[in-house]
């Protein structure tokens, strides 16, 4: 029961964050690339002022899977690194915490390029 509730919360919050993206896409002249940049910067900002953490606690993957979650992750990482290592942490925290995601994407990108062919239409 608890699991179903957690999934439902993730579905609703995640769905809402995506819906806002679609709204920006259809109702403003913004293109996807710009929307994504806004999302990631918003994630850092909302994390910095302490709003994103409670959302994440409530929705779990519903807040961490959308790109705002990536922004929050960067924010969390840099904060932790500064606390532990001081000045150098400013430049270390962001990349070290998103290392898995970026490395996985690079790895998959290369592998897919090796295995697959671009399809004609």
């Amino acid at each position: 029961m608890e699991l179903i509730f957690a999934l439902l919360k993730a579905f609703l919050v995640g769905g809402f964050i995506c819906f806002v993206g679609q709204f920006l896409l259809d109702k403003t002249p913004l293109i996807p690339a710009k929307i994504l940049v806004i999302y990631v910067v918003m994630g850092v900002f909302l994390g910095a002022i302490g709003i994103y953490k409670p959302i994440l606690k409530f929705a779990g993957a519903g807040a961490s899977v959308p790109l705002t979650g990536f922004g929050y992750l960067l924010c969390k990482g840099v904060k932790k690194a500064v606390e532990q290592e001081g000045f150098i942490g400013i430049f270390k925290g962001g990349f070290s915490i998103c290392a898995v995601g970026v490395s996985a994407a690079i790895f998959c990108g290369l592998l897919v390029a090796l295995i697959f062919q671009s399809r004609g239409r």
Binding site: S118, G120, R121
Partner: peptide, 18 residues
């Protein structure tokens, strides 16, 4: 050619855009 034009003027073919 659809694919040649698409990759020059727009996005990669497998990019998920609407």
């Amino acid at each position: 050619h659809f694919c040649a034009a698409e990759r020059q003027f727009r996005f990669p073919l497998e990019y998920g855009g609407q």
